[in-house]
Simulated assay, not measured.
Amino acid sequence: MNKQIITTLSIAAALLIAACGGSSHESASATTTTASSEQPKSAATDPGSYDPKRGEGKYDASNVTVGTLDASMAAKGKSIAETKCFSCHKTSEEKLVGPGWKGVTSRHPAYWIMNFITNPDPMINKDPEVQAQLEICLVRMPNQNLAEQEARDIVEFMRQNDGAK
């Protein structure tokens, strides 16, 4: 009887771990469905119109502006990143599960970063640079369901990490 209970619990634990991994086809399509219900601006109607400089999502130069570093936002962003990001990313150039964050704000505008961290699945599917990174990292970035302000705070922390003043 005890062996049967242990076996059942072991199988249940293995299934739970597999379901939480974020790489199963079923969970990816569920995330895509949720994200696509928001209807991002760019390629929602024409997949051939993807702009790799802007990304896929509702953010662009008209609704995301950066100026002088906001230390308060950066502190909030660091706190959010410690909870939602640092299990996969380092603030250096070193790869953990995902790529390191050092220099990301010099490679991409803030709105591109916000589109990616709030809407990763369509960008992973369409962006050549993100697809190349996926080949290196081998793990799709999960959608962390960040609120707009959380995403903006994380971008400000990334800017601080890259030396913005």
Rank of each mutant, 00 (worst) to 15 (best):
I6F: 12
A164C: 07
L138S: 14
D60F: 04
C20K: 11
P99K: 08
P120F: 03
Y59R: 09
K41H: 08
H89Y: 01
P99T: 10
K90E: 15
S24V: 01
V64Q: 00
E38W: 04
V155N: 13
I113S: 00
E38M: 08
A74M: 05
V66R: 14
T32Q: 03
I154H: 02
C85N: 01
A28D: 06
G77N: 09
N63M: 06
S23I: 09
K84Y: 05
M73V: 03
P99M: 09
Y50G: 03
G21Q: 03
A14K: 07
S62H: 10
E38L: 10
I11D: 09
E82R: 07
S29H: 13
P122L: 03
D46T: 08
V130S: 13
E156L: 01
A19L: 05
N125S: 04
K165C: 11
Q160D: 12
D121H: 02
G163T: 02
K41E: 09
F157G: 03
L138Y: 07
T83L: 08
L134M: 10
I11P: 02
P47F: 08
P52W: 00
Q133N: 14
V155Y: 03
G103R: 05
P120C: 08
D60E: 04
P142E: 05
E38T: 12
N125Y: 00
D70V: 10
C85A: 02
N119R: 05
A28N: 07
N161S: 10
R140T: 11
A18G: 06
G48M: 06
C20M: 15
G57A: 01
I5R: 14
K58H: 14
N161L: 12
T7S: 15
W101T: 02
A74H: 04
G57S: 04
A43S: 12
M123K: 00
F116M: 02
K3G: 14
E26T: 13
P47I: 12
